[in-house]
Amino acid sequence: MPRLALYALAVCVLAVAAAVVSFAQGSWLGIVWILLVGVSSNIAWYYVRKAKNDRAAGAARG
Rank of each mutant, 00 (worst) to 15 (best):
V21Y: 08
P2G: 12
A5H: 03
R55A: 14
I31D: 10
F23V: 13
V13Y: 14
I43V: 14
A51N: 02
D54A: 15
A8K: 01
R49F: 05
W45I: 05
C12V: 00
A10L: 14
L9G: 08
A15D: 10
Y46V: 01
L36Y: 06
V16M: 11
A8V: 03
A56E: 13
V20N: 00
M1T: 11
A60Y: 02
V11M: 11
L36T: 05
R49L: 12
A17V: 15
A57K: 04
A19P: 02
W28R: 12
K52C: 11
A19M: 10
V13A: 14
A5G: 05
Y7Q: 11
K50M: 04
M1Y: 11
I43Q: 05
R3F: 13
D54W: 04
G58W: 04
M1R: 04
A8E: 06
D54Q: 07
V21Q: 05
V48G: 00
A60W: 03
C12L: 10
N42G: 12
Y47A: 04
F23H: 01
L36F: 08
G62M: 09
A17M: 07
W33D: 15
N42W: 15
V48Y: 03
L9P: 02
A19K: 05
I31G: 01
R49I: 12
A57F: 08
L6C: 11
L35Q: 07
V20A: 13
Q25R: 07
A18N: 10
G30L: 10
N53C: 01
V39P: 02
P2F: 10
A17S: 07
L36V: 14
R55N: 14
R61Q: 12
R3V: 15
G26Y: 00
A17D: 13
A59M: 06
A10M: 10
A17L: 14
F23R: 03
I34W: 03
V48P: 00
G26H: 00
Y7N: 09
S40N: 11
L4S: 08
A57T: 12
F23P: 03
V37P: 02
P2M: 02
L6I: 15
C12T: 13
V32K: 03
S40Q: 07
A5Y: 03
K50S: 15
L36R: 01
S41D: 10
A10W: 00
A56P: 04
L4H: 01
G26L: 05
I43D: 06
Y7F: 14
S27Q: 07
A59P: 00
A44T: 15
R3C: 01
S27G: 08
W33S: 08
A44S: 13
A19V: 02
V16P: 04
R55G: 05
L4C: 07
K52P: 00
M1D: 13
A15G: 00
L6T: 05
A59H: 09
A24L: 10
C12I: 01
N53R: 07
A17I: 14
S40M: 04
G38W: 06
W28F: 09
V48E: 12
Y47G: 08
A18K: 02
A44M: 13
L35E: 09
W33N: 05
A5P: 04
